[in-house]
């Protein structure tokens, strides 16, 4: 565990907590893409199946369980408890356009052709693009609530911090995983435009709105 990895994990944890608290406190999930949340639940479910086969540490297991539980709790809040506030008219990104190619790629490019390994690879690839429905929704409505942009910033920062973690681990331990690195790069690149808007607008106290 190095400082980049720890900062990445904390950022990831904060993102998920911010989202749940935002929905709970405002009693509304307006502006949040349910489709991205479904993809994230699928990401955690397929990646953390090793909870049953492989124990790494109490920290590792606790975080995995928290991510899985929080992702399903978010889906429950969006599609059940606060369903009336869900902005489905603007949440129209076709997730099968992500799931189908990602499934094919996971079957073709993986470290080992075994069920758990393929599901892990699928989750890494899917995570890299899972935010697209949310970013699509923001671009469609042309704006995001400030709390939603904090959520997106924390979620995007997490994988970017992991990139530094992987650079560190490559030099310190000789450890590298090309699948995770390439997917992490793609994931971070997708956030670039948002990061720019966040830094130039939200951090200066303005609402995140896109130029018309």
């Amino acid at each position: 565990m190095n400082v980049f990895r720890l900062a990445g994990d904390i950022s990831h944890l904060l993102a998920i907590i911010v989202l749940v608290i935002k929905i709970w406190k405002t009693r509304s999930c307006a502006g949040i893409s349910g489709r991205s949340q479904i993809l994230f639940a699928l990401v955690y479910t397929t990646r953390y199946l090793d909870l049953f086969t492989n124990f790494i540490s109490a920290y590792n297991s606790a975080m995995k369980i928290f991510f899985i539980v929080a992702s399903y709790a978010t889906i429950f809040l969006m599609y059940s408890k606060f369903r009336a506030t869900y902005d489905h008219n603007h949440d129209t990104f076709r997730i099968e356009f992500l799931i189908v190619p990602v499934s094919g790629l996971a079957l073709l490019v993986n470290h080992d052709f075994t069920p758990l390994e393929i599901l892990w690879t699928f989750s890494i690839y899917l995570e890299s693009v899972a935010i697209l429905p949310q970013l699509f929704m923001v671009s469609k409505t042309g704006e995001a609530e400030t709390i939603t942009s904090h959520y997106l910033f924390a979620l995007g920062s997490y994988r970017t911090l992991y990139l530094f973690n992987w650079i560190y681990r490559y030099y310190a331990e000789g450890f590298y995983d090309l699948i995770a690195i390439i997917a992490g790069l793609v994931q971070s690149v997708l956030y670039c435009d948002f990061f720019y808007l966040y830094i130039t607008k939200v951090l200066k106290g303005k609402r995140l709105s896109l130029p018309a």
């Binding site: 990895r5 990831h12 090793d50 975080m63 991510f67 080992d112 992991y162 995770a180």
Partner: peptide
Amino acid sequence: KIKKTEKDEL
């Protein structure tokens, strides 16, 4: 090749 046991990241 990365072994399953080396997947200590989240």
